[in-house]
Design a protein around this nucleic acid. Structure first.
Lengths: 190, 190
DNA sequence: TCGAATTTCTAGCAACGATAGATTATCGTG
DNA sequence: CACGATAATCTATCGTTGCTAGAAATTCGA
């Protein structure tokens, strides 16, 4: 089976190469710069090889988004657990979310802006996506006060998503983002 | 000058035809369906005529976005003024915003999601865009309580923007949107 | 009514995502 | 080692996109 193994290893390595090259291109030059020709040149294979690994350009973006959910869940979790104080924990989570969006805007776009066949908020939702959302739920639960924690978490998430995307699109004023995050936390945590 | 006048009238009519045809296509089939060939066929002229009116496809989208800001400002203003109670006024504004995004998702996308050369929140910001934002500022001002009303308005706007875009992308749960709007208003208006 | 100016169209470019079919490399077997 | 079969990879191409140059047609003023 060693030959099969080697082929499988090579296949997986190439799949990873496609994903990391795509991510690098998207993060440095935007998703529009990710063309199949450019990508093929970058991984030093011809275009059809890409289609042996992914159904098409959109499938690559979705695979990258899935990577992102895993990373975001980790980031949010460690931020939330830096303190036992619920209010400070919520602020830490909000800052971590905003930093994540700032540091990897293309990744963030793939996860939360791009049209996608990934299913959110239902039975078919992948575990990594659930995990990321559950971090927000955990952070807001102490402040639920009768409100459904899941819906409150959606609202807080929406506020964070809004300030991140609007800021990214130069649609907000010059005030530092931290000011907006503190207002969000203040509204929730009283 | 009647010949000049007629030409100008025809020019303006054709410009309007381009915009309304584009908007219809985008609203019924999405922005991807707006191709210059399709648009040319729709307005019954050849492609180059489009470029006599707009610098390109993106310029059309921006012109449509500008129309949208005017419409949104009107919608928000009349919603806000349906009641003298600040809390009810804020809820009415939030509902009106959400309804606007629901009813014209393509228009909304052009205004708040698409990359754009329109400048937000600075000296060069067009009046219609200022007016729409000022409606939100007016609605939240009664609840500012020491916070800068402009930044608070940005946060409320971001929350509304977030719930609208995330819902549009099927990223939120099955609960009715009104539940989220009430939570947002509750957070701001105590 | 006719030459000049303007308007409009036809035809085409380069780049895109994607794929069919030829070509090369690799495999197990005698 | 050699060879036929299989698998992997590439070249070349398709249809579509935004956009534009240059030809053709129309409209204008004299």
């Amino acid at each position: 089976m060693t030959i099969q193994d080697r082929k499988q290893r090579e296949n997986e390595a190439r799949r990873r190469a496609i994903l990391s090259a795509s991510r690098l291109i998207a993060e440095t030059e935007g998703w529009n710069a990710l063309t199949t020709r450019r990508l093929a040149h970058e991984i030093e294979y011809s275009q059809p090889v890409i289609y042996a690994h992914f159904d098409g350009r959109d499938a690559i973006i979705e695979a990258i988004a899935l990577e992102g959910f895993d990373e975001l869940a980790t980031v949010l979790s460690s931020a939330r657990l830096t303190t036992a104080d619920p209010r400070q924990a919520l602020l830490a989570l909000a800052s971590a979310y905003s930093d994540f969006a700032d540091r990897s805007p293309a990744l963030y776009e793939a996860m939360f802006v791009a049209r996608s066949t990934l299913s959110f908020a239902n039975a078919a939702t992948p575990d990594v996506m659930r995990a990321a959302f559950q971090e927000i739920v955990s952070a807001v639960r102490p402040f639920a006060a009768g409100r459904p924690p899941g819906v409150l978490a959606e609202v807080v998430w929406a506020a964070l998503h809004g300030v991140c995307t609007l800021k990214r699109g130069s649609r907000l004023g010059p005030e530092p983002q931290s000011q907006r995050l503190e207002i969000i936390v203040g509204l929730v945590a009283g």
